[in-house]
Computed example of a mutant assay.
Amino acid sequence: MVQHSEVRAEHRPFRLPPAAPARVPHTVVMLHGFTSGPHSVRAWAEGLAAAGSEVAVPLLPGHGTHWRDLADTPAPEIRAAVRRTVDAELARGLPVVVAGLSLGGALALDAAAHRPVAGVLLVNPALRFASPLAPAAPLLRHVVPTVASIANDVADPEADELAYERTPVAGVAAVGAIQRAARRGLGRVTAPVTVFRSARDAVVPAASHRTLLRGLRRAPVQVVPLPRSRHVATMDLDRELLVERSRTAVAGAVQGLLR
Rank of each mutant, 00 (worst) to 15 (best):
V2C: 04
L16H: 05
P18W: 06
A20V: 15
A20D: 06
T27M: 06
V28C: 13
V29F: 05
G33N: 02
V41H: 02
A43L: 13
W44G: 00
W44D: 00
E46Q: 15
G47H: 01
S53K: 07
S53L: 07
V55H: 00
A56Q: 09
L60Q: 05
G64Y: 03
W67H: 15
W67D: 04
L70R: 10
P74A: 10
E77Y: 04
E77K: 11
A80H: 12
R84D: 15
G100D: 00
A106Q: 03
L109D: 01
A111Y: 00
A113G: 14
H114L: 12
G119D: 06
N124R: 08
N124Y: 09
L127R: 00
L133Y: 13
P135A: 01
P138D: 11
L139P: 03
T146Q: 01
A148E: 14
A148L: 09
S149L: 09
I150E: 06
V154C: 02
D156N: 15
P157Y: 10
P157C: 11
A163T: 07
P168N: 12
V169A: 04
A170V: 03
G171K: 02
V172K: 01
A174R: 08
V175C: 08
A177T: 14
R180E: 15
R180A: 15
A181D: 14
A182V: 13
R184M: 09
G185A: 05
V189Q: 09
V189S: 07
P192W: 10
T194Y: 05
R197M: 06
S198T: 09
D201S: 05
A202R: 14
A206M: 08
R210W: 11
L213V: 15
R214F: 09
R218F: 03
A219E: 07
A219Y: 02
A219T: 01
V223W: 01
P225I: 12
L226T: 11
S229T: 11
H231Q: 10
T234G: 06
D236H: 08
D236K: 05
D238K: 08
L242I: 05
A249Q: 00
Q255A: 12
Q255L: 15
